[in-house]
Structures are given as C-alpha cells and as structure tokens.
Write a protein that binds this DNA or RNA. Structure first.
Length: 474
DNA sequence: ATAGGGTTAG
C-alpha cells in the first residue's frame, strides 16, 4: 500500500507546482517533503504523524483534503488529537463544511476539540453558532471550559455586542483566577468592540503583571476603534513597537489624515527592518493614499515583496478614490495576469473596489465586464453591495433602463433589498421621476426607517487635522 | 490538537 499508492508524492508534487510566495510556505513545503520521504521508505502512518503534517498543510489547502484521506486509511481520524488538528486545518483554510463534518464524526470530544470547533465558528463569522456550541459544551457530560473557550467566546460576544454575556465571561475569568495577559487582551478587545473604552482602560490599568506588546497593541487598537486618536498616540509612546503596533499607528494616521506622522511611522518601519511584513506594507500604501500622496502609495506598493490580495485591492481602491479609474482598471488587469501565474486572485472586496473606481470615472463597459466576470470567471456571487455599486455606475452613466432591469431581478429576493441598493436606484432615477416613484413603492415604512438609520450610522466623519502630542519611540 | 493585538470597499 505504501509504494504502490504514493498519495503523498502526488500531494507534494502538487504543492511544488504552486508557487510558495512566503518563507512560511517554504518551510511547510520542507516538512511535506520530509513526510513524503518517510512515507516512501514505508514508515507506518501512525496517528502521531498527522498533527505535524496537517500543520504544514496550512499553506496548501488542497493537501489537507488528501491528508484526510490518508488518515481515514490508517484510522487516525478516530483519534481525537489528529482529528482536532484536521478540524483546525479545514477551519484555517476557510473550509467550514469540512471542519464541521470532522467534528460531527468524532466519537470522543474533549475540551480541545470543542474549543477548536468554537474557534472555527467565530473565525467564519458565525458568533451565534459559536454561542450555541458553547451552551452545548456546558450541557451535562460535556468537557469543562478552558481559557481558550472563554477567549473565543469573548470574540463572539464582541461581534454580537453581547455585553451581558461578555461581562459574565469576564466575571468567570476573574472567578477562575485567570490573570494571564492573553485573557486580559481578549477582554480589552471585547470591551473595545462594544464601544466601552473606559472598561478597556480599567482592565489594562488594573493589571499587576508585566505587560507585553500585544496588550499595548490591543489598547491602541481600542482607542482607534473608538476614535480616541490622541490617546492612541500617547499609548503608542509607551511601548517598543512591533509590526502590529505600527500597523495600528498607520490606521490612526489615515483616519486623521496626518501625513507627517505617517511618514515617521514609515521611517520607523524601515529602521526596524519590518518591510517584509505584507500587512504593514499594505497599511503604508493605504496611509499614503488616504493622506493624498498617491505616488508615494504606488511606490510603496511596487516595493512590497509578497503582494497579497489586500495589497492589490488597496492600490486599486487608492486609484478609485482619487478618481483615477483608468489606472485602477489597468492595475486590476495586471493583477489578473499575476493570477494566471498563480500568485493572487481577486476577492469580493477587490471587485467592489473596481466597480467603485469605474463608477467614479464613468467607465461603464469596464464596470459591466467586472460585474459579470466576478461570477462567471471567478465564481464569486455578487452581494447586494456589488449590485448597489453597479446600479450606481449605470445610473451615473444614464443607463437607467439597464439599472432598473437589474434592480427588478435583484429584489425578487427581499434579502437583497438593502438600503445601499435602494439609494443607488433612487440616485439612478433622478432623471426619471416616474421610475423613482415605482422604486419608492417597493419600500415600506420599515425599510425607510432602516435606510435612514443605516445612513446615519455610515455618515462620514469630518476630516480635520490636529497636532499630535508625542513622538514615536524608536 | 485549541486561545490575545494588524491592512482592503461603500
């Protein structure tokens, strides 16, 4: 069975064909090669072999599926340890369905298996299901909670703004005497997500232990999320920054339109040799674009070693917001050339950015091509926000009938009748009051109220500059 | 085998 069916060989060959753009991927590939050699020599597929193998599969989602097949062959999938590792790989690769199937198939579920499930649900934006799982875990016969469980639950509570449950968990953490930094960081992040900045500061100030950079980052991020930029910058002055600290700092600079401070952060980044961190580089591109320095943004973009989908999308969006639709479109085309060589592919946000850029510049044909290609070529279903953007584009270009037709198809499903869609259609109807009335007829009082509420929530804050009180520690 | 802090749109 070992030599005649070299599944791992094919699996690793497949990995070698696809490019490995980051050093992490490369080391994972090394691990896969090692596994292949052992497997070729006829080493038994012991259950212990799978967790490290699955760890290496994080970089290569298609391999996880094949590792799973090997686990079934050797019955390793019946052991909770490799099964949990498998669940986690599926979760990290965005394969929710497979992850849940693994959990359902487990006959023994310890705390770690439950934790991995809850973490998976939170990661996939299903906080309600995470809470249901949490309650199921608490039911008779379930394994006990651990700090891991409570950390994931705090995240679920933040995304639901479930203040009561979150506070109950906070109380439980105190009752357990769990005063770890990880837990405190999760609690700060929970209060921050619920808009309770004072509570976040209280947790931070009550800590007795030595603080690490992650908890400072959480506090800085909390200030920024709650628009307390001055405080964000003063906390920033208290910590030796890492890549994440600087990324936070940049988002504050972008929000405040503070170019001089953004440049300082850029300098600190270079001095610390953090320029291989793609996320940080993406924030640099965004900061320059938001502060009006499009060319500096472009230069920074070109210098990113391992551009990911966010890098490309940020630059496309930068051109779009500067009214440079043609440049945005060109970059989108170039991105797709890179896609053919296997590096990156556009996601839903990319398409929205392209549609928006085309809309601002009146590129109707390009916008239409983009809208239809996202489904047919890339298998991404447009959400209501894509429809809204496309309808807006068509309306601005005077293609009211085309917009109307799209709108009528769209709202056959009431879930699509979002405020953005209605506003876009009403905008398109400006030149045609009969259509505007027809459009308005679809809306009940509830919808109108919802629309106005949504508009209120999304109102842009005014852009003003202010002096920043401290300098960054280098 | 599971947990904390980060970037993209409207």
């Amino acid at each position: 069975m070992k030599r005649s069916r070299p599944v791992i060989s094919r699996l690793v060959a497949h990995a070698a064909l696809s490019p490995s753009p980051s050093p992490t991927d490369a080391s994972h590939l090394d691990a896969l090669h090692l596994f292949r050699r052992a497997h070729r020599r006829g080493a038994p597929l012991a259950a212990e072999a799978f967790p490290p193998l699955l760890f290496a599969c994080r970089s290569f989602p298609s391999l996880g599926r094949q590792a799973h097949a090997l686990m079934v062959k050797s019955a390793a999938n019946l052991h909770p340890v490799p099964a949990t590792a498998l669940l986690d790989v599926y979760s990290r690769c965005g394969l929710l369905r497979y992850a849940l199937d693994v959990f359902d198939g487990m006959s023994v579920r310890d705390s770690i298996a439950w934790n991995a499930l809850i973490s998976c649900l939170v990661r996939h934006g299903l906080p309600d299901d995470a809470i249901s799982a949490f309650r199921a875990m608490a039911a008779d016969g379930g394994p006990p909670f651990t700090g891991f469980t409570l950390c994931s639950m705090l995240k679920a509570c933040a995304s639901l703004r479930a203040v009561r449950l979150g506070k109950q968990i906070h109380a439980r953490v105190i009752g357990d005497g769990n005063d770890s930094l990880v837990m405190a960081t999760a609690i700060i992040d929970f209060y921050s997500g619920c808009g309770m900045i004072q509570e976040a500061f209280d947790v931070f100030n009550r800590l007795n232990s030595e603080k690490d950079v992650a908890i400072y980052n959480a506090l800085i991020s909390a200030c920024i999320q709650n628009r307390r930029f001055k405080e964000a910058f003063s906390v920033l002055g208290l910590v030796r920054p890492n890549e994440i600290t600087l990324t936070c700092a940049l988002s504050a600079c972008s929000e405040c339109l503070s170019l001089p401070y953004g440049k300082q952060v850029h300098c600190v980044m270079v001095r610390h040799g953090f320029d291989s961190d793609t996320t940080l580089c993406n924030a640099i591109v965004d900061m320059y674009a938001k502060c009006g320095e499009l060319t500096s943004g472009r230069i920074s973009f070109e210098q990113i070693h391992h551009k990911n989908v966010v890098s490309w999308t940020s630059m496309i969006a930068a051109y779009g917001s500067h009214g440079r639709g043609v440049e945005a479109w060109k970059l989108f085309k170039r991105m797709q050339e890179e896609e053919i060589s296997g590096h990156v592919s556009p996601n839903a946000v990319t398409f929205l950015s392209v549609l928006s850029a085309c809309g601002h510049s009146g590129l109707v044909d390009e916008g239409r091509e983009c809208f239809f290609a996202m489904q047919s070529k890339h298998g991404i279903d447009p959400g209501p926000e894509h429809y809204a953007c496309f309808i807006y584009l068509l309306g601005r270009a005077g293609r009211i009938e085309e917009a109307w037709k799209l709108y009528c198809d769209l709202i056959l499903n009431p879930d699509n009748l979002t405020s953005a869609v209605c506003i876009a259609m009403l905008n398109a109807c400006k030149a045609n009051m009969d259509l505007a009335r027809a459009c308005g007829q679809w809306l009940g009082a509830e919808d109108l109220r919802r629309m106005m509420k949504d508009r209120g929530l999304k109102k842009e804050a005014g852009n003003s500059q202010f002096e920043l009180p401290v300098a960054i520690e280098t």
